[in-house]
Design a protein around this nucleic acid. Structure first.
Length: 430
DNA sequence: AACTAGGCT
DNA sequence: GTATAAGCCTAGTTG
């Protein structure tokens, strides 16, 4: 048994004896096959939506010109800032600045949305123009003769995650007014269903385990509402009394913790006072002392060794961790906190894909010569999610196998949970 | 090519 | 005094 195995065992982790290099070797052919298979795209659906949104975009353009009293390039942040802050004299206090001037990012403009009706128009314009120019227009042009879309996966990331490009199928819209419509254009082959399996809070479960955090391990072990538990802790109330708003704050705290978020960052994210954010974080660490120790351990390990690593040994070197420029060093300290968590999640996903690929071969071998037009096969992966397609009559069974594979490819000190969906398209299968 | 913005996990 | 939440990819503007 090697060092990593011993270390993992002390954390209550039972993992396959495989190195990060071996994982990466074995995932490659799986990815190449997924790229070749591709996923069905309903081009007509996207084109129709593009046409509809383009009409709305034109309306908004006219309304913005009228509200401002001038015509300008709405897509130019420079011209936008000039119109809002020089011509209309909207207040800039409290707004972030970029290198070139006052930021016109949506997060900043929404702070002054009550100052002028044009802000709402601009935000809607930006939303539509993003969807049209990045997704609705380009994607239909990229399909093959069978109306299938093929991405390219890369592994040269700093944490071990995969990335996807040309087109990037890991950032297809899902939120907002049109997210569902866009996802619905990603479809299963005829006679097949899409099967979507998502790791539930995988990074939080990993950090609970790596940090040996007692309260969090117990909460996950009892299958409790982790965000409600956090809310109770940071607001000093009973779990039963947690409101929806308090739970939302707690969710943001849980989310931010694996990124090394500061009180300032949390205050920005939630639109609250820095002092309030600081209190929440303090209360959080009072409950989760294991998490606090883990963060400090990772930072000091990075300072000493110059790198951090995942449980399978993927390393990230942090050459500037000892920089005398404080914000440079602090930036790498946050990377030191996050990378072992994000990287371990990536490895678990890859392991599950490798194992599932083997199981799919067995499934398909068994069904050879039975006249099925579409084999059960892996199509996409999005960081904590795997998308498959399988013949309708097999979908339930394949889904169960997928869920089982993902949940048991590694045993951690907290249960690993996977949510499963089956449907004709990517919207319905979620 | 740099910068700004914004889509996803 | 400066910065402040990790990791990606793509599109449009600017010079």
């Amino acid at each position: 048994m090697n060092d990593l195995q011993t270390k993992a065992q002390k954390l209550g982790i039972i993992m396959p004896e495989i190195s990060s290099e071996q994982i990466n070797d074995q995932i490659k052919p799986v990815l190449r096959q997924m790229e070749e298979v591709g996923i069905g795209l309903n081009c007509a659906g996207l084109n129709n939506l593009a046409d509809k949104l383009t009409i709305r975009l034109k309306e908004l353009e006219g309304q913005i010109y009228q509200a401002v009293g001038a015509e300008f390039n709405i897509s130019s942040p420079i011209q936008m800032a000039e119109m809002l802050f020089d011509r209309l004299k909207l207040p800039t206090t409290g707004l972030k600045r970029t290198k070139s001037g006052v930021s016109t990012a949506a997060s900043e403009l929404s702070k002054i949305s009550s100052e002028h009706i044009v802000i709402a128009l601009i935000l809607e314009y930006r939303e539509l123009s993003k969807l049209i120019s990045t997704y609705l227009r380009p994607l239909p042009l990229l399909v093959d003769e069978n109306s299938r879309l093929h991405t390219t996966y890369s592994m040269d990331t700093s944490t071990g995650r995969l990335s996807s490009s040309e087109p990037n199928l890991q950032n297809i819209p899902i939120k907002g007014t049109y997210g569902e419509d866009i996802r619905a254009a990603f479809v299963a082959s005829p006679g097949c269903k899409l099967i979507v399996a998502d790791y539930s809070q995988i990074e939080l479960r990993i950090v609970a385990c790596l940090a040996k955090d007692k309260a969090m391990i117990e909460a996950f072990g009892r299958d409790e509402d982790i965000h409600a538990q956090t809310a109770a802790a940071i607001f000093n109330i009973n779990m039963a009394d947690v409101t929806a708003a308090e739970r939302r704050v707690a969710k943001a705290v849980n989310f931010g913790i694996v990124y090394g978020q500061t009180p300032y960052g949390l205050s920005q994210a939630l639109g609250i006072e820095v002092t309030a954010a600081a209190t929440y974080i303090k209360n959080y660490f009072d409950l989760h002392t294991g998490i606090m120790d883990y963060i400090n351990d990772m930072i000091s390990a990075a300072h000493t060794d110059g790198y951090v690593e995942t449980i399978f040994g993927t390393r990230r070197y942090l050459p500037n961790i000892n920089s005398s420029v404080r914000y440079i060093a602090e930036g790498e300290e946050r990377m030191a906190i996050n990378m072992p968590v994000q990287g371990t999640a990536a490895e678990i996903l890859k392991l599950a894909m490798i194992e599932m690929s083997k199981r799919l071969e067995l499934i398909n071998d068994k069904r050879k010569n039975k006249g099925h037009d579409c084999p059960a096969r892996m199509l996409l992966t999005v960081h904590d999610e795997i998308v498959l397609e399988a013949p309708v009559e097999m979908a339930e069974e394949v889904g169960k196998i997928l869920k089982d594979t993902m949940e048991n490819v590694i045993i951690m000190c907290v249960p690993i949970k996977v949510s499963l969906g089956i449907g004709d398209n990517w919207a319905k299968a979620k």
